[in-house]
């Protein structure tokens, strides 16, 4: 068997194993919270009798382990359970929210990843000169400012003063793609500013590291232009660390956008999760947790696999 298939298979099975561990942890942590779903539904005024009845009805008297496997079995068959607050099917209501979040994350990634890599290349090309310093200064500033502040500042100056984009990023099914894109302009901008610095700095560092290699000197002594040397000779060897940090940031775009969604009142997973937590809607919290974990683990696994595929020694064994 080609060694690369073996390595990729190893990564995949490790990812699945990790996902199971994460599910156990999420379940265990919600179990450890004081009170339970029955308490949450009935609130402070509950009598011991009604609590006991509801517990019986919800199956909460079963041991935790068997409830965990029930829940896990449900997830595997696509059944995320029902919300205890509004009695709706979670899979359905989460599905729409997840779609919105992925939509926002996708467009933020489309803008930020190529921009970050291009700025990284540019910073290497003009290393230690003013373009490099300017790029570093701006990206470091934007990563240092809390994202809600950037969000409100952009809303005030762009949306309110200049009429560019909309302050509230409400989207719904009846909107055309163009209308949706117009609605998410500002959140995409904020997210881009937040993740840009990390990816750009890593691109710069990884390529500068490769630029010390003897084969870069060989390329320079072939009379290639500096940009050619960087793009054709340095970049292919810096793919692995760059992909890793890109994937971390993509994961952040999906699971870490709670604050931005709240600022722009965007109907995504983040708001959904926050609502569920305040209402102590444990099944929804569990569902969101496992989806976030799956996305996080999946993207990092993808980064590992791309790193493996990018290594010529593994791709073309002796």
């Amino acid at each position: 068997m080609h060694p690369i298939i073996k390595l990729v298979a190893q990564r995949l099975s490790l990812g699945i194993l990790l996902l199971f561990a994460a599910s156990a942890m999420i379940f265990g942590l919600t179990e450890a919270l004081p009170g339970d779903a029955a308490q949450a539904v009935l609130g402070q005024a509950a009598t011991p009798e009604s609590l006991a009845n509801l517990r019986e009805e919800m199956g909460l008297n079963e041991p935790a382990v068997s409830r965990y496997f029930d829940w896990l079995g449900g997830i595997m068959t696509g059944d995320l359970g029902t919300s205890i607050v509004n009695r709706l099917d979670i899979a359905e209501s989460v599905g729409k929210r997840l779609g919105n979040t992925l939509f926002l994350a996708f467009w933020a990634a489309v803008v930020s990843v190529p921009l970050a890599i291009f700025l990284g290349l540019l910073a290497v090309r003009y290393r230690d000169r003013w373009p490099d310093k300017l790029i570093s200064a701006i990206t470091l500033t934007t990563i240092s400012i809390p994202e809600f502040l950037i969000g409100y500042v952009l809303v005030y100056f762009l949306a309110v003063k200049l009429g560019f984009g909309t302050a509230l990023a409400m989207v719904n099914d009846s909107m055309s793609l163009w209308q949706k894109l117009n609605a998410i302009t500002l959140p995409v901008l904020v997210l881009t500013l937040v993740v840009l610095a990390h990816m750009m700095r890593m691109t710069r560092a990884a390529i500068l590291n490769v630029m010390q290699s003897a084969y870069i000197e060989t390329a320079e002594l072939k009379g290639l232009s500096t940009f050619n040397v960087i793009a054709k000779h340095a970049f292919p060897n810096a793919v692995s660390p760059i992909v890793n940090v890109v994937m971390l940031n993509l994961a952040y775009l999906v699971v870490g956008v709670v604050v931005v969604e709240v600022v722009f009142v965007y109907p995504g997973m983040g708001q959904f999760l926050v609502d569920a937590v305040t209402k102590r809607d444990v099944p929804v919290v569990l569902a969101c947790g496992i989806i976030f974990a799956a996305i996080y683990i999946g993207l990092n696994m993808l980064a590992d696999i791309i790193s493996i595929l990018a290594n010529p020694r593994l791709r073309h064994p002796k």
């Binding site: 003897a214 000197e217 060989t218 009379g223």
Partner: peptide, 24 residues
């Protein structure tokens, strides 16, 4: 200089292993 390097004058280094780009 660019037309000179790699065109009129070329270079063979001590360590070919390090001087070849591993990715190509």
């Amino acid at each position: 200089l660019r037309s000179l390097r790699g065109g009129e004058v070329t270079y063979v280094s001590q360590s070919a292993a390090a001087s070849f780009n591993p990715a190509r």
